[in-house]
Simulated assay, not measured.
Amino acid sequence: MNSRPPAAHPETKRPTHSLLTPERVKKQKAASLVLYIGLVLLALWVVRDFIPVVAWAGVLAIALWPLLRKVEDNRWLTGRTTLIAVVLTLAIALLVVLPVGLGIAQALREARDLTDWFKTAQENGIAMPDFIHRLPVGSQQLAAWWQAYLAQPLRDSAAMKGLHSTTVVTLGRHFGARAVHAVTVFAFMLVTLFVIFQAGPRLSGALVKGLRRGVGDDGAELVQRMAAAVRGTVSGLVVVGLGEGALLGVAYFVTGLPHVALLALITAIAAMLPFCAPVTFGLAALWLFSQGSVAGAVGLAVFGSIVVFAAEHFVRPVLIGNSTRLPFLLVLFGILGGAETFGLLGLFIGPALMTVLMVLWTDLVE
């Protein structure tokens, strides 16, 4: 007796490919797209704490990419990508670590004098400076306030009691945690930058190829212009800031200010941010005025104003605008708006986004 099941009828067999109707293929593509987007978002959420690290490394890599290409074209360094990456990464690390180290060392040297002054203020109060009597307006009111609150021993004052409260301890811990976080971010940024430099032309070629495949030639050109905007912004902010710091450092030396090198470094860092340099040389001018050097204070204020005016209104817009072909107003809005939205990193992201708006506007009107 045959126990095998009867054979299926030929008409009941259907080829597998016949099940993939156009509607089904469309649904599969949509599901795949949703899956890819979900996985990308999940990956970004996993590495969310490292996104600023990659962004900073990208900004520095874009700014230094022309230098990297020139170094690689040297016949003595051809093919030594690891050596080039190590040297460039160490150079960037030293450019950051050395000024910070000098500032910390200077602060430690001044710590003893500051401690002695603090003890004297607790026991005897803070002596009123002579320049208060020479103020054209409000000298009597300010002198009376100083005598009432600062000229007396500060040991029992509310301000001194506040220095020993738990608020100061909390602020100190918060500052320490922020400092550790900044050091960690900087270390990971250096590692990321080394990897980018080591990849070199292979990475740039792969990025351009991927952009052309994904968004076409127009999209690839737009991204390249955004990179040029970042590079121009770095030049406009960093180079001009260093120039302002050097010129004002000479003025600090001529007017007889102490710690000229440290003041020049602080001024250069402040000058990298729009409209922040006047704060540094303004405070220096006030210190000179308080010491009785009226001519030096006025000269420093006038010279600093001229330097900052020329840098902010002529040199910096030319450096940034020429590389991005952006008008001055868009450059200014990009820098200030980017800093307000994204923090310090936004100084470089803002002009790049303004470049996108400029390209879109040009495409619409042409």
Rank of each mutant, 00 (worst) to 15 (best):
A151G: 08
K70R: 14
L95Y: 13
Q224R: 15
A8P: 13
P327V: 15
R4M: 10
P6I: 10
R325E: 14
L60V: 13
V96A: 11
L344K: 12
G232W: 02
S32K: 05
A158M: 08
V240N: 09
Q198W: 08
L171M: 12
L67H: 03
M272R: 02
T12V: 12
D363K: 15
T355D: 02
L283V: 08
V137Y: 14
I37E: 02
A105Y: 09
A285I: 05
A310P: 00
L203P: 08
F348W: 14
F275D: 14
D218Q: 14
L19K: 13
K26C: 02
G346D: 04
E72S: 06
I266L: 10
H17P: 00
V318P: 01
L329T: 07
G350P: 03
S323F: 02
A268S: 14
L203Q: 07
L242Y: 01
T115I: 05
W145V: 07
V308C: 14
V254P: 00
G216F: 05
V54F: 09
I92T: 01
L336R: 09
P66H: 07
P201L: 08
V331N: 06
L154R: 00
V46S: 04
A277E: 06
R231K: 07
T166I: 07
V302T: 11
R325F: 03
F50V: 00
Q106L: 02
